[in-house]
């Protein structure tokens, strides 16, 4: 059954009166790989967290798969920004992925053998099976991000949210991650990815949300990836835009 995966009406979020997200309305169809792009401090993480009701919103209505967020939490996987995690936490790679099975475990239940096997399969999918016994801090940035993607896969979600998954990540990890995200979309899942620069945005995503407090542009990559639209979001960052080959 298709239909909008997310529909947002007039979303406003502020921190102590300072508006971080202003009046965003949009609707994302199921099965898309959507990039949220915009400069640093544009409110991308805030937008993501407000959609998931992780921070209070001032105004607005968010429907996910046609329902309120509360009703569908277990069908959503969220991968936080990498610097939100304590990498010294005493946990192994496999146990971190196993946490992905927790949303579907009842209270007082522990993960069983089949959950562990499932976690291992998810690790295999991101190519990290040989690291299962390592402590999570003993990995490179790219490997850490792949482990967190494996955790999201373990959640068997229909909707995936990733906050800046490509920051501090090596090229081959980035390729692996993009490949898996594209596979997920082909399987009919919806994937929303925060991405702070424009490079490769046109290769990775089929829809873009261009954000700078307000919604600057939303649509297919062709519609949004136009100099005049992008200029509006990245005011004054022309040097950077030339670098990545956006001609003005």
């Amino acid at each position: 059954m298709k239909g909008p995966a997310i529909s947002i009406q007039d979303l406003h979020v502020s921190y102590y009166g300072n508006e971080a997200v202003k009046g965003v309305s949009l609707s994302v169809e199921t099965g898309n790989l959507v990039g949220i792009i915009g400069p640093n401090g544009a409110g991308k993480s805030t937008f993501l967290k407000a959609m998931l009701n992780l921070i209070p919103k001032d105004k607005g209505d968010v429907k996910v798969m046609g329902r309120t967020i509360k009703e569908v939490r277990k069908r959503i996987a969220y991968v936080p920004q990498r610097n939100d995690i304590d990498w010294d936490f005493p946990i192994t790679v496999l146990d971190a992925v196993l946490i992905g099975t927790y949303p579907h475990l009842k209270l007082f239940r522990r993960p069983k053998k089949k959950d562990k096997e499932w976690a291992m399969q998810c690790l295999q999918r991101v190519g990290m099976q040989d690291f299962s016994k390592r402590q999570i801090g003993e990995l490179s940035g790219g490997q850490q991000q792949r482990v967190f993607l494996a955790r999201a896969l373990a959640q068997q979600a229909d909707l995936f949210f990733l906050d800046e998954p490509f920051v501090g990540v090596d090229v081959s990890s980035e390729e692996t991650i993009v490949k898996i995200l594209k596979e997920l979309c082909r399987q009919g899942k919806t994937v929303i990815v925060v991405h702070h620069d424009l490079s490769k945005a046109n290769d990775y995503f089929n829809q873009l949300i261009l954000l700078n407090k307000e919604l600057i542009g939303f649509g297919t990559v062709e519609e949004v990836f136009k100099p005049e639209v992008i200029k509006k979001a990245y005011k004054g960052q022309f040097a950077f835009m030339n670098e990545i080959g956006v001609s003005l």
Binding site: K74, F89, I99, Q155
Partner: peptide
Amino acid sequence: SFDETMAAAYG
């Protein structure tokens, strides 16, 4: 303790 945001995200 490990990832409070994820915990909140799944309810």
